[in-house]
């Protein structure tokens, strides 16, 4: 429990700095933000009104405190485009992205877990070499290109799947999955390559430990040694990797969502950038960073729950 509180406290300065960085974004625009947003043709009155709305007429520190206070209450301001509250926009867009992340992650796990185990069971043999080669290729193919190839093949040529046309899961689960399967596999394949290498090397490491030798000495089959004894321990570092992976998916899906026209979080950010809707950009980026900090926190806590040795190690320091 003490660890959880200490870890929470450690996240506070990070969150503070994140908020300062996001806040400063608006002020790092070349020139006066209000003029940049509205363009050169805007009337002086319109610019003055926007300056007041964004609080640009106050001192910087007061602006930050104002902004941070509102953010703390869940108020991220309003979209400069259509006055929708940014929080509402984000909440609208999160489900599609969350589904993509979960799906891509499941795809990655479904490929990586068996192939990582098979590779580690017989290291440096044919299956391992093939697995390593495939994972190198998987890490090297840009996932957005793979997505385009999927569209070309499965949508344009074969006509099996729709190239775009997102439907919420709640509205029509089967249409939703049809639209989501290609982006999920395209993104998940790359992650599976990283995860597979991780599982393989972690499992190999555990297989050299004494307790595994004991299990082997008892005459257990390789299958039972791996599945019954080694796998559980070897998955500990995989938990951390998974956390990092979910965070990187949040960024990586930005492009996938554009390719498949999925109205997700990434698409929100890109559309906002192109339409100079800086309050939306700010809010969305802030929320993504907060999500990452949150995921890292959960991973660290999970880590100590799964492996009590880690907590001990920390306290000894």
């Amino acid at each position: 429990m003490g660890f959880i509180i200490r870890r929470l406290l450690a996240a506070l300065p990070v969150l503070f700095l994140v908020s300062v960085m996001v806040f400063m974004m608006l002020h790092m625009l070349p020139g006066d933000p209000a003029t940049v947003i509205l363009g050169d043709e805007a009337t002086p009155e319109a610019i003055a009104a926007l300056r007041t709305e964004l609080g640009l007429d106050k001192p910087l520190l007061a602006q930050y405190l104002d902004w941070a206070g509102k953010v703390f209450q869940g108020n991220l301001g309003r979209s400069l485009l259509d006055r929708t509250p940014v929080t509402e926009l984000i909440l609208q867009r999160l489900p599609a992205t969350a589904e993509l992340i979960a799906g891509s992650f499941l795809v990655a796990l479904a490929i990586a877990l068996p192939s990582g185990i098979i590779a580690a069971a017989r290291p440096n043999q044919a299956a391992d070499h093939i697995g390593t080669a495939v994972s190198f290729i998987g890490m090297s193919i840009p996932h957005f290109w793979l997505g385009m190839m999927f569209i070309m093949f499965f949508a344009a040529r074969l006509g099996w799947l729709p190239a775009s046309g997102y439907v919420p899961f709640s509205a029509d689960p089967s249409a939703n999955l049809k639209a989501m399967i290609m982006p999920m596999v395209a993104t998940g394949f790359r992650e599976s390559a990283i995860l597979m290498r991780m599982i393989r090397s972690s499992l190999l490491e555990v297989m050299n430990l004494d307790y595994i030798r004991t299990a082997r000495a008892k005459g257990l089959s390789t299958r039972r040694v791996i599945l019954g004894h080694a796998l559980k321990n070897s998955l500990i570092p995989v938990v951390t990797t998974s956390g990092i992976m979910i965070a990187s998916l949040l960024g990586g899906l930005v492009i996938t969502e554009s390719i498949f026209s999925i109205p997700g979080y990434g698409k929100l950010i890109i559309d906002a950038i192109f339409s100079r809707d800086y309050t939306t950009v700010q809010g969305a980026i802030l929320v993504s960073a907060v999500i990452v900090v949150g995921i890292n926190f959960i991973v660290d806590v999970l880590y100590t729950l799964i492996d009590p040795r880690i907590k001990l190690g920390k306290e000894n320091n």
Binding site: V14, M25, A247, I270, V281, I285, S288
Partner: peptide, 24 residues
């Protein structure tokens, strides 16, 4: 190190997008 943590909290592509938004 806390600045590094904060910078790392942004998914890298989103960080790049944010900078593109600011710098063009």
């Amino acid at each position: 190190m806390r600045l590094v943590d904060a910078l790392q909290a942004f998914p890298s592509l989103i960080l790049a997008l944010a900078m593109a938004a600011v710098l063009g």
